[in-house]
Design a protein around this nucleic acid. Structure first.
Lengths: 146, 146
DNA sequence: GCCTCATTGTGAGTATAGGTAACAATGAAC
DNA sequence: GTTCATTGTTACCTATACTCACAATGAGGC
């Protein structure tokens, strides 16, 4: 098979997988009442030592700051996160998890793992390890934790 | 490493990849004036022998028929596809590519391949083959061509 | 001090993607 | 020939993320 053609095929497979993962994610998040974008934000918040600023969240989620405002509005209305002012800089708002938010995050992780287990069922342990290595090689910049 | 934990890590990696591919897809489609959803529809149309019905498109794209109406509206306004009535069943509308649509599809394939080449740069030929096999194993149902 | 400029978050509006509910036109089955 | 299923669409809603504009605040030069 021609190199260009095989690259095209790989692109097709990746796009199909992307689509499938997107649908699966929506499925397993639905019962939790959390949207995929909120789920990403919660994970970024939980991965950080200190409460992040809105602008940091935007950078790590790779979206414009305005998008973060909407997401935090939603999560705050659900009681999962809290906006706290920064004493050192009155422009800044920091976002931290509430106790409810930590609970939700745990349920979210469990649901994600169950969904992944289902998706990965066709692969044996050594194939999963292979896949993990390939994905790590593809991901040159692991700083974005979304 | 614990089995559940490694599954969770794989899930994380897959979600990051999903996100990244989604952004990359939007990037390379932008100059073509085609949205990702339109691109999927064009590919499904092009993969079929005969012109498909709206309801077939919905099934292959895994969306509700109503979503197909909007997409075909857009593509038709761009002159890339054409709605044709079905003589055998007057409820049915079939969607076929125009000559412009075939051109667009070719540019789209080229752009996708270039983007894939960029994304896959960190992988050598044998790693790409491995990845292709793993993705094929994951994709139990290749009937959905979106 | 004060003037300018950069940073930070958000209101207002838009586009894309998709979903539900209701419906008219048509075909199929009894 | 009446009832029921299929097909596409009108009308509306949600989620995601964008641009633009703007007010509040901080930082630097003078």
């Amino acid at each position: 098979m021609d190199v260009a053609e095989s690259t095209g095929n790989l692109a097709d497979q990746l796009l199909r997988l992307t689509r499938r993962l997107h649908r699966a994610q929506k499925q397993y998040l639905q019962p939790l009442g959390i949207t995929p974008a909120m789920s990403r934000l919660l994970r970024v918040v939980s991965h950080s030592e200190e409460p992040l600023r809105m602008v940091d969240l935007a950078q790590r989620l790779d979206v414009v700051p305005r998008a973060v405002t909407t997401l935090v509005d939603g999560l705050e209305s659900f009681g999962l996160v809290r906006r706290v002012p920064d004493p050192a800089n009155r422009r800044v708002i920091r976002v931290e998890l509430t106790a409810q938010g930590r609970d939700a995050l745990q349920r979210l992780r469990d649901a994600r793992r169950a969904a992944a287990e289902d998706l990965l069922a066709p692969l044996g342990p050594e194939q999963r390890e292979q896949l993990g290595e390939l994905l790590a090689a593809l991901d040159r910049d692991p700083s974005r934790s979304c």
